[in-house]
Amino acid sequence: MQTSTMKTPASQNSNADTILTVKGLKAKVADSDKQIIRGLDLTINAGEVHAIMGPNGSGKSTLSKILAGHPDYEVTDGTVDLEVNFRQKNLLEMLPEERARNGVFLAYQYPVEIPGVSNAEFLRAAFNEICKHQGADEMDPLEFDDFLKMKLKFLGMSEAFISRAVNVDFSGGEKKRNEILQMAVLSPRLAILDETDSGLDVDSLRIVSDGVNKLRTKNNAVVLITHYQRILNYIVPDRVHVLYKGQIIKSGDKSLALQIEEQGYDALIKEHQTSQETSAGGSLQG
């Protein structure tokens, strides 16, 4: 460690509370030249809720998929480190399933249907993979059923979710709630919620938000990817980032979300473009 020539700020790598560190991340659609993420920095600490907001097409959902390891995207530059047992590990080198076993969870915008496989079977398979990874005992179907019932009760969800096939014939709201159930069962270190609020009515939004709030602890972190400020009334963020064309153009506290709600993204984008032009002009001179 002594030989390292890189000087890192004390608040970052050496801080055990940092769960995720993204530096200079660039990514494109695999097998194409389409750049989507163009130099993104983000640090997420334990106990925090980060909201990533932005207009359509800014790269919000892509960012969540890249963090989960989706093969449709290719990282071309930058680093992503995940804290695993007090050590920083290169997230980008891990397979999608290894990321999940090390505590990364993606709640999908469009959860996938798995016909014929019950929620209980699916969740037990996933849960046992994590147990195996952590060297813990796996659960048999009966034990797991009790465990699942406990989680359902905790979230105020119906036991009907146990035997239904994963997301098959679920309403939009049920699909989102099912993602939160998975989060409750797998208790991830870092939960990325990709537009979990989209398409939800007020009641479903409250149920889903309550669930997320109940699952928050000092040791985990939540990244909320959203287009609207609405969900942030229920899940209050510590940090709000605005993503535009694959870069974070502004970060702030929860008041930034309110500002967006009032003024829209346009004002922020204009402000960003002006500052870009100035700095571009400046660098030309230098």
Partner: peptide
């Protein structure tokens, strides 16, 4: 489907086995 299962910690073999079973 395979990616969804992988992103829950299940490897490719396990994912296919679940899907076939279903």
């Amino acid at each position: 489907q395979i990616f969804y299962l992988k992103s829950r910690g299940i490897n490719e073999e396990g994912a296919i086995s679940l899907l076939l079973n279903g």
